[in-house]
């Protein structure tokens, strides 16, 4: 059995965000991390592998620098890593990205007992679209927002989180499941893992390798081919600064309370 884990390297948006003069995010100046939900997908794959014989293949699309992240995933326990990288792929929206990744997985081969795991969404876009769209391109059933995955033979019983509870869904492999952080606690790399990572295969698939793949429509990939385009990006206007109270904690609190009383809030 092969388990493909789709992973994205993202800028760490939880800390300080570097901004270019034109208002776009300066990714080069921000630390790159493995997308958090994707680590839960990787952990789920490694747990399944512990129970039965499986090959875990980490798949990512990104610039050559993402190779470092792939080494980390190998150190975590992935058996193989595949980096899809090419200038032609840059600037792809979710529609374009998913057909490239689906094409790459199709190229690598997907059999009846195989599984694809993804994180629910990446923190730089928050769209949660690429997972379902890969499933559609490969004609596989999907389950998103997984909080529990139980495998019996080729049948997966998955708990899928809803806003007010969950639904329990059964699907057969091959299928695609997207994972959220409630699913598990991702493991760290081990020292042995780091040493063995260098001996594991890291393959790069570029445009040449994938351009004849039937699932990839070369006219709808990349920045210009993507169906959606950025029309305008902007910052919200700076609202006039409100009133800052001064004084001791008690004095500030009293000034606030007076204002609130004045405005009939209290």
């Amino acid at each position: 059995m092969k388990i493909y884990v789709c992973v994205k390297q993202v800028p760490d948006t939880s800390g300080v965000v570097a901004v270019n003069p034109d208002g776009t995010m300066n990714r080069a100046k921000m630390p790159a991390i493995i997308n958090p939900d994707d680590l839960n997908a990787m952990e789920a794959a490694l747990q399944l592998k512990e129970k039965e014989c499986a090959t875990v293949v980490a798949v990512s699309m990104g610039p050559p620098q993402a190779g470092e992240m792939m080494r980390e995933l190998l150190a975590m326990g992935a058996d193989e890593a595949v980096l899809i990288s090419g200038r032609e792929f840059g600037g792809s929206d979710t529609f374009a990205t998913s057909q490239i990744i689906a094409g790459a997985i199709h190229h690598l081969g997907i059999k009846e007992e195989d599984l694809i795991l993804c994180g629910r969404q990446a923190i730089d876009g928050d769209t949660a679209q690429v997972g379902p769209q890969i499933a559609e391109k490969l004609h596989l059933p999907q389950v998103t927002y997984a909080t529990e995955i139980i495998k019996e033979g080729n049948t997966y019983t998955v708990k899928r989180a809803l806003e007010d509870g969950y639904m329990s869904i059964q699907v057969k492999s091959p299928c695609l499941i997207t994972c959220i952080k409630e699913l598990n606690e991702p493991r760290y790399m081990t020292v042995e893992g780091v040493f063995s990572a260098d001996e594991k295969p890291l393959t790069v698939l570029d445009y040449e390798a994938l351009k004849d793949e039937p699932l990839i429509e070369t006219e709808t990939i990349g920045l210009n081919g993507s169906p959606t385009n950025i029309f305008k990006s902007f910052n919200p206007p700076v609202k006039g600064k409100g009133e800052m109270f001064v004084g001791s904690d008690k004095e500030m609190a009293m000034q606030l309370a007076e204002k609130l009383a004045e405005k009939h809030v209290i």
């Binding site: 965000v17 901004v19 923190i123 876009g125 029309f231 990006s233 902007f234 910052n235 919200p236």
Partner: peptide, 8 residues
């Protein structure tokens, strides 16, 4: 971009 900017 993680909510640091608005885009249309």
């Amino acid at each position: 971009f993680g909510g640091h900017l608005m885009a249309t």
